[in-house]
Design a protein around this nucleic acid. Structure first.
Lengths: 189, 189, 189, 189
DNA sequence: GATGAATGAGCATTCATTCAT
DNA sequence: AATGAATGAATGCTCATTCAT
């Protein structure tokens, strides 16, 4: 309510910080509310003062700590005649604002918690629409049919979304720029 | 392991069946051993007779119910001069033998359980190697450089691995044949 | 205690209203102070401003919302020569002023909270004394011995006290007038 | 499953014993499962092994430790021409088999727990039917109308049921024999 | 191999109560 | 008088695991 001292976040913030770290590290189910409270250095009861149910902590994290930018009509990265650069810039500036920890949570909990899955689905659709629009602008000649362009956009969106997860799980590093190059060639002159 | 009565799977099998369904449905952490035993219609103690620790059930599932074929030197699907068909056939005959439930488990538990992650990593590397080898055979002229071919193989492997997950999570359906077409064009004549 | 706005009961009253409803519905133990505050639409802390301990809410309800009239020497309902009418009028004008909810509370909490039990005991003794005195007046000839008259008074008092409880618990409806008739005959000419 | 040592009741019995004492003493809500386990000298978890929910302990107590005899067509206590003795014998041989503790529980928890209320309601109806039948036999001349006989039976049943409760709550002792005498006179010669 | 009682740590959640503002 | 964050003990219940039979 008033000025906040530097370094002394309020209790609610500390709870969310702790939960974010723990959920990312070991998963939602394996992170007890007692442990969250302990890491946040607040009494156990306070967690439930702010979040009546444990799931509300996860929901709050997704709501407050992930943000998906809407797809604009004219994506800034789109440059006519430069599809490779366009995709590369899109990769460099993902319309998802979330810490690495939140990104792990988004993937790990998506298939059991609807609110998380919804956020991830939204991200995918925004990414897909943006990639498609950017490609349309970058390739004014509309070379290739629309279906091909959609497949290209969907593939690129999927690569952007899963690349981090893939690297973490399998060690395989998939370079978005290399994929951008492939897609440009596939659609290209 | 001995004669088996028709229609009545033995206890160990029933336990694994139950665990497979539950782990896929709600995750490993959220599936209690008591619930596994209940669904398997065996007494609680019997689960621990076969699997001394709960984690051993998951390990057994991954060991016994997922199988990744080794990448052969000459993949059957590879046909010189037909890269699109080659990739399409690879997509149709994934070297992963596992039920849909086991595939969900593979993804869901990968980032917290090493044995699962290892299996998934192995699948990725097999897929990658196989796609690369198949493309080498399909494109004898070695058009394009090696790096591009590797990116293509890695992209295609990633698409095959994540496509099901992506559809389940976001509703986005990514057609492997369309991606095969893109890649063919990217590498192609 | 000061001027009161029309239609907007003050906080203390609202707290007692809420507690009365909840205690009657689910019992004292099962009604949390938080729930009382919620139903009363007051902040949790305010309950403890007015009632330092939870039990004080119950005590205040019993003190302020139940009232047992003292037994007069000449009960208004007593008419010489008309014992049946006398008892019937006594039944119709119970010397207990309390809402149905408060009556439930009186019974439900009597055996664990002394203050409630005392109030109920007082009610019983007032009823007994009044019924006895009324019968003495109604039956001037002092027919039957004193012991019989006391048993009659005690029985009638018990019937009046428990009749509502009995109906709620067992569905059995015991008509006080019918009991008055029985007693009149038992004592009577 | 085998012979039971004297004085060493099995765990389930000890849990029920402890719960019976605690519920009677302080009520169901105020008796925690931990306290029940402590008094029974069993680990907390074992309570839930036998009774999945706390309420199941109460239900088991009511099921297993109260028994209401069915009303026979020819109640043993009924003797033609001796209504007072008939009622007196009925009072002396209540068709309810339950410890004093169980009787307190029956009353205290009846208005919040259906299974308890049902048992109490059943007891009342059995008592009423039995008293009515016994009076019909005891008073062969059918003196007085049927309505009066029903009121007498209902009153006597209520007195039997509430007498103990009344004594505990108010200190008022209502002698069933005295009530039997009143009723006999009311119906009588 | 099969069984189910036993165990106690741990879980999410609720609670009455306090207190600074 | 009013407020809601804070507190930590306690609650009902679940858990993986053990073990005697």
């Amino acid at each position: 309510m008033g000025v906040r001292r530097t370094g002394a976040a309020d209790s609610r913030t500390r709870i969310l910080d702790a939960a974010e770290a723990l959920f990312a590290d070991r998963g939602y189910e394996a992170s007890s509310t007692a442990r969250i409270a302990g890491r946040a250095q607040v009494p156990k009861g306070l967690v439930f003062h702010y979040f009546p149910q444990k799931i509300d902590v996860l929901v709050a994290l997704v709501d407050e700590r992930t943000f998906v930018e809407d797809a604009p009509d004219e994506p800034a990265e789109a440059v006519p005649g430069d599809p490779a650069g366009t995709l590369s810039r899109l990769a460099g500036r993902l319309p998802l604002h979330a810490s690495p920890a939140m990104r792990r949570i988004l993937f790990r909990e998506a298939d059991t918690h609807r609110s998380v899955r919804d956020r991830l689905g939204h991200l995918n659709s925004v990414l897909f629409l943006r990639a498609r629009r950017a490609l349309e602008i970058a390739l004014p000649g509309a070379r290739g049919d629309q279906a091909r362009l959609e497949a290209a956009a969907a593939t690129f969106a999927a690569v952007l979304i899963y690349q981090e997860n893939l690297a973490g799980l399998t060690g395989q590093h998939l370079d978005p720029d290399a994929v951008a190059d492939l897609i440009t060639r596939a659609l290209g002159a």
